[in-house]
């Protein structure tokens, strides 16, 4: 395993353009999407969809998306329902519903023939796993046919039962007020990043958390109670990369180890000293792993 200092910076060979999109789901949620791509995109490369975790937004991927697009990839990021610029829709938040939202984003941006690489962080990983394991998703052909790879960051397939009092706290106005105070918000979220996370990363995390609607935070954290996707993992034939920080206190590294062991074609990367907010703490490493996965599949 290489340390972060040894990870090469991706070649920034392309000027990057970004375009904003909105799509509607079958229950009328509006999902805000940003597509980052090189000025001359290569349609033979897979579309890479980055799915953020609870109480974040597509902007959590900004550095990763930009580096990948500059290296020639077409990247889509979107706000999960109820987050940032996306609306909640009629159906309640659940892992299955978020997987169908991912399917809508993929179906909106690609033809059925174009392969897709999905990168999910934390709760975005739960949705990515549910999408990838569901043979009916993305019909005709199902997800399996078009899935060229999965990158699962700080995530798990089971065992994420947020205690009821924490779910309640996520929706509490008092907690929201505390999050809006920078020093206090960063302190409250101290367990979500590693000990060496930069002030910039910690503050970005606080802002994302604080700007998420309390109802969305609480619904998201409640949605993973009882989640167990282990029975579907064997169906995911696409190559996968599992990344975990050794200091992750939110989704403990043991869950990532178990996930990597259960997926038919997975490689595990454990990053020393890094916490749960991998996209903010080490975006270069995430970009590198996605880049390698895409190139390996060509």
């Amino acid at each position: 395993m290489r340390t972060i200092a040894e990870i090469p910076v991706l070649p920034a060979e392309h000027a990057v353009t970004t375009t904003d999109h909105t799509t509607t789901t079958d229950d009328h949620a509006r999902l805000a999407i940003t597509v980052h791509q090189p000025e001359t995109p290569d349609p033979t490369r897979p579309l890479v969809v980055l799915v953020h975790g609870w109480a974040a937004s597509r902007t959590v991927w900004h550095a990763t998306a930009h580096q990948l697009a500059a290296a020639g990839h077409t990247i889509a990021t979107y706000d999960q329902r109820g987050h940032a610029s996306s609306t909640v829709g009629r159906e309640p938040i659940s892992i299955a519903r978020l997987a169908r939202d991912l399917d809508t984003v993929v179906g909106t941006l690609t033809t059925a023939e174009r392969p897709v690489v999905v990168v999910g962080h934390s709760g975005g990983g739960y949705a990515a796993l549910a999408w990838a394991a569901d043979p009916d998703v993305g019909r005709p052909g199902g997800a399996g046919k078009r899935l060229a790879g999965l990158v699962l960051v700080s995530t798990a397939s089971h065992g994420q039962d947020t205690p009821a009092n924490e779910v309640k706290m996520m929706g509490s106005p008092l907690f929201s007020r505390a999050l809006r105070t920078p020093w206090l918000g960063r302190k409250l979220l101290g367990q979500t990043h590693g000990p060496r996370a930069s002030l910039e990363a910690r503050e970005a995390n606080r802002r994302l958390f604080a700007s998420t609607r309390p109802q969305t935070r609480s619904a998201c954290f409640a949605s993973s109670q009882g989640m167990d996707q282990r029975s579907g993992l064997g169906r995911i034939a696409a190559p996968a990369v599992v990344i975990t920080g050794t200091e992750d206190k939110v989704v403990k590294p043991s869950f990532s180890q178990e996930l990597a062991a259960a997926l038919p074609q997975a490689t595990l990367h454990e990053v020393p000293g890094i916490g749960h907010m991998v996209p903010l703490e080490i975006p270069r490493q995430v970009a590198h792993q996605v880049h390698q996965l895409v190139l390996a599949g060509r």
Partner: peptide, 8 residues
């Protein structure tokens, strides 16, 4: 103003 709206 540059925006793309989609629906299935």
């Amino acid at each position: 103003i540059h925006h793309t709206d989609h629906t299935i």
